[in-house]
Simulated scan of single mutants.
Amino acid sequence: MTITQLHYVLAVAEHKNFTLAAEKCFVTQPTLSMQIQKLEEELGVLIFDRSKKPIFLTEIGEKIVTQAKNIVNEAGRIKDIVDQQKGYIGGEFKVGIIPTITPTLLPMFLNNFINKYPKVNLIIEEFTTEEIITKLKNGHLDCAIAATPLEIDNLKEVVLYYEPFVAYIPENHKGADKTEITIDDLELDHILLLQDGHCFRNGILNLCKNNKFIAESHFQIESGSFETLIKLADEGLGTTLLPYLHTLDLNESNKHKLRPFANPKPAREVSLIYPKNELKIQIINALRDTISGVVRGAIAFSDVEIISPKLQK
């Protein structure tokens, strides 16, 4: 039994296809198939049911895959232990970030991190929270930055900052004449939201505690962009809520339409998320310290109420 064979098993278990798994492992399909067959012969069991399309794990195969993930992760810790002993901070490091955080947070810390840790090959991609959880569990990401708490088994969350919600209210809307607002000042049937899949949308729905008002509206908007929502609000189509960091780059005219919430301010909790086996922990710590250092000057809110990014039924 080899670590390479276990890598091949995990690839097939994930993609449910030998050809695609071979492509992801950068080997030929016959090579991958032969190595998995050798492992099955050694163990005396079938890991995969090849009679079905897509390929399914057998009952014993599911247990083998669970253990294989542990073995592969622990094998990865050997190099990690050596790197930590040497004080080495470098190598490839994959980070997932949700789209509502990327445009504001990334420019704040990326240059600092690259300059301080030039040996780290940072690979950053945008994913939804659900995609991030799956990729972290499958070992395709080293860590992620997302709204929490998520409370997922085997994933650790380290809070980076709390980011308040801020209302964007053009003239002639309820609350426009106030310096601070509460949830009661919002016109629930006129709030413009991001499209499904964004946890910031879920946060707003949780804040309003009314999932029906979107369906009852005379129109529905599907947008992944805060800029689009702002423009629609300026056209008189409603109001919207923005994360605090996003409001810092608005022009002065738009900033006059912002209304903060009274304390405790509804806010999202933004955290670093990574597997509890803590592979590459030295890079995770470096990333945490860099982000905390730059965000500390921009986010200084303590009296907040954390709104869950998971849609509450």
Rank of each mutant, 00 (worst) to 15 (best):
149 P>D: 05
285 N>S: 13
188 L>A: 13
148 T>H: 00
307 I>R: 01
229 L>H: 07
75 A>C: 09
187 E>G: 01
312 Q>P: 00
170 P>L: 02
34 M>V: 04
169 I>C: 05
109 F>S: 14
52 K>T: 15
68 A>P: 03
264 P>N: 12
88 Y>F: 15
1 M>W: 09
134 T>G: 07
82 V>N: 06
252 E>F: 07
288 R>I: 15
136 L>N: 00
223 S>I: 10
144 A>I: 10
74 E>F: 08
301 F>L: 04
233 A>C: 04
92 E>D: 13
63 K>M: 04
243 P>H: 06
95 V>M: 11
132 I>F: 12
192 L>P: 10
210 N>C: 03
68 A>Q: 03
276 K>W: 00
75 A>L: 05
228 T>P: 03
263 N>G: 01
204 I>T: 06
92 E>R: 12
153 D>E: 12
194 L>E: 02
296 R>V: 12
9 V>C: 15
195 Q>K: 15
223 S>F: 09
105 L>Y: 07
166 V>R: 00
157 E>H: 01
256 H>I: 10
290 T>H: 05
280 K>M: 07
239 T>C: 08
286 A>K: 08
248 L>K: 13
178 K>A: 07
255 K>G: 04
77 R>K: 14
205 L>S: 03
209 K>L: 02
107 P>W: 11
69 K>F: 09
180 E>R: 12
24 K>R: 15
205 L>H: 06
159 V>P: 00
99 P>S: 14
101 I>K: 02
47 I>K: 02
13 A>S: 11
56 F>L: 14
196 D>L: 14
149 P>F: 05
64 I>V: 15
207 L>W: 00
136 L>C: 02
88 Y>A: 06
62 E>N: 10
262 A>F: 01
251 N>I: 10
62 E>H: 12
144 A>R: 10
202 N>D: 13
101 I>E: 05
114 I>T: 11
89 I>T: 14
300 A>I: 09
58 T>H: 10
37 Q>D: 04
46 L>C: 07
186 L>K: 08
198 H>F: 15
88 Y>T: 07
56 F>I: 14
122 L>C: 10
23 E>C: 02
249 D>N: 12
9 V>W: 05
244 Y>H: 11
70 N>F: 12
230 I>R: 04
293 G>T: 14
148 T>I: 01
156 K>L: 09
11 A>H: 11
208 C>A: 06
184 D>I: 04
8 Y>A: 00
84 Q>T: 08
97 I>R: 08
287 L>C: 09
218 H>Y: 11
88 Y>H: 06
80 D>R: 06
175 G>L: 08
295 V>E: 06
150 L>M: 11
176 A>F: 13
216 E>M: 06
